[in-house]
């Protein structure tokens, strides 16, 4: 796959309500990229805790995404709004310790184009990399 973020370890947290067949749909990518991509389904994006995001960076991710449902489409009503706040908070925390805030990013789906988890992930992988290998990882 022509991946622009080649060499980067990507961790994707996502709301499972986005794609009911997520477990099947993500397999081709898991096979192609092996340990370079890790998917963590959440029952709701609002279930994310800043600790999840920090732990992901700590355990070797260069980029951490949280994919939430479109605004107004959260099954738990405000999970995605709360997720936004938590991502903001985690970004602030990592900036304080000298990491780029952009290593954590919230992606919100659009209601108009419901997508499967693999197509969303592929789009993310095709984007120009804004960050390089994480200093957490390079220090080993």
């Amino acid at each position: 796959m022509d991946q622009k973020t080649a060499g980067l370890n990507i961790t994707i947290f996502f709301c499972q309500q986005l794609d009911i067949d997520q477990d099947k749909n993500r397999r081709t990518l898991e096979k192609e990229l092996g340990s370079q991509i890790r998917f963590f389904p959440l029952p709701c994006s609002g279930r994310i805790d800043p600790l999840h995001l920090l732990r992901a960076l700590e355990s070797g991710a260069d980029m951490v995404y949280l994919i939430a449902c479109p605004e107004g489409a959260c099954r738990y009503r405000e999970g995605n709004l709360r997720a936004r706040k938590r991502v903001g908070y985690a970004q602030k925390l990592i900036e304080e310790i000298g990491l780029e805030g952009a290593r954590i990013e919230l992606i919100t789906g659009t209601a108009a184009t419901p997508a499967t988890i693999d197509t969303i992930a592929r789009e993310l992988l095709m984007r120009d990399a804004t960050v390089g290998i994480s200093p957490v990882r390079s220090k080993g």
């Binding site: 499972q16 309500q17 477990d23 389904p41 029952p43 709701c44 099954r75 738990y76």
Partner: peptide
């Protein structure tokens, strides 16, 4: 605090 069904369980 809410309790919800876990979609990973169903999968």
């Amino acid at each position: 605090i809410h309790k919800g069904l876990n979609p990973s369980y169903k999968a």
